[in-house]
Computed example of a mutant assay.
Amino acid sequence: MKLQSVLLSFSKFVRSFVLTMIAVITPFYLSGLGLSALGIGAVIVLAVVISTVFVYTFAYLKVNLRNRMLLLASLFTASMAILLFSSGFYLFIVALIIGGITLSGRDMTANETIEKFSISTYEPSQRSKNYAFSVYNFSSYGAGSLASLILFIYGSGNFQFYFLIDLVLAALQFIPYLAIKFPEKIERESPKKFDEPTLKTVRKLSYLFAMDAFGGGLVVTSVIALWFKAVYNISLSQAGLMFVIINVVTAVSIIIASMLADRLGLIRTMVYSHIVSNFFLIMVPVFHTLLLSQIMLYLRQTTSQMDVPGRDSFINTIIPPEHRIRSNSNFLVVRNGSQVPGPGIAGLLIETAASSVFFLGGGIKILYDILLFVSYRNYKE
């Protein structure tokens, strides 16, 4: 694994720490301001829309990759400063807008498209790509574990303390972006439009990813935190502990995913692990007790993100190098955009039929798994 890939994984780590912490505390922060579950769901929807606009805008920005990344880091850091030095609902929204912050709890930012493209360029072989993307995604969930652990240990409603930590970490993104050389030459020589075979592949995958993302939008981190708060009245400290376990389990599974992909192949690893995960997702509300709901959620996480490094490696192999930034941006816009209705629908369902959030989300995602397997079961690596 190249040093450049390691440094970009560090960037992923600090960004994911911030995004996880913000996603978990948002339902508690906004409910303290008097918002209902439906209102909080609407804010999560707004955050997804803003993040989608960021991804689309920065994919076509006419500046080199390094300056693009430095601008993104500057805006992200500025948004954390606003959260730290201000309070209230409207300035919270301003911070979301300036930083392009998604409240999904996952790093689906404009940074990610350029980082993935760069890693796919640095790593020469399929095996090294599989490993590099596993480490890259592992860093995300390792960061999520640490962020959740701090919430569990500190367990206070002093949100400014959390925002201070987020500000310091957000500023650390400048280190890797200033230290490495981005593959500017390939990006400059990329054609403005997809060729016909690539366009066909991008469209097909976009439809599939849209379905998966719509189901995922119903169960993003903020929605899960909101559901457990609404149904079981858990505290911020309890939520922190729950997400510590979730992220630790997920981080371990990400590393195992690389080994499985080498043995089973990318598509089978993606599909088999995802179906198991979504079965447990559907089971979360079935038993009507906090402990059993949490156990089902933890079991879900054992395979929930095993498809992510495989998907990253698959996309950045099946798509030619000159089209990867544009295609990664396209897929991220599709995934973010398709998540938009989810939190709003989830907020409404939590107030009316809470269990249906997991039934609907898991069912849609299983349908995606089946269609992906049917479409690419004969893919040769």
Rank of each mutant, 00 (worst) to 15 (best):
M1I: 14
K2P: 10
Q4H: 08
S5M: 07
F10T: 11
F10Q: 07
S11A: 15
L30N: 09
L35D: 02
L46K: 03
V49C: 08
Y56W: 15
T57P: 10
Y90M: 12
I93H: 00
I98Y: 04
S125R: 03
Q126G: 02
N130F: 01
F133E: 06
Y136C: 06
F138Y: 05
L146G: 08
L151Y: 00
Y154V: 14
Y154Q: 11
L167N: 04
L169T: 02
Q173V: 05
F174A: 12
A179L: 14
E184V: 04
P191Y: 02
P197E: 07
T198D: 03
T201H: 02
M211S: 10
V220L: 13
W227G: 04
S235G: 05
M242H: 08
M242I: 13
V244N: 10
S253H: 07
M259L: 13
L260I: 10
V271Q: 01
I275F: 06
I275C: 07
M283N: 05
L290E: 11
S293A: 13
T303P: 13
G310L: 06
I319K: 01
P320R: 00
I325K: 00
F331Y: 15
V333M: 01
P341R: 12
P343Y: 07
I350V: 06
S356H: 05
Y368N: 05
I370K: 10
K380W: 04
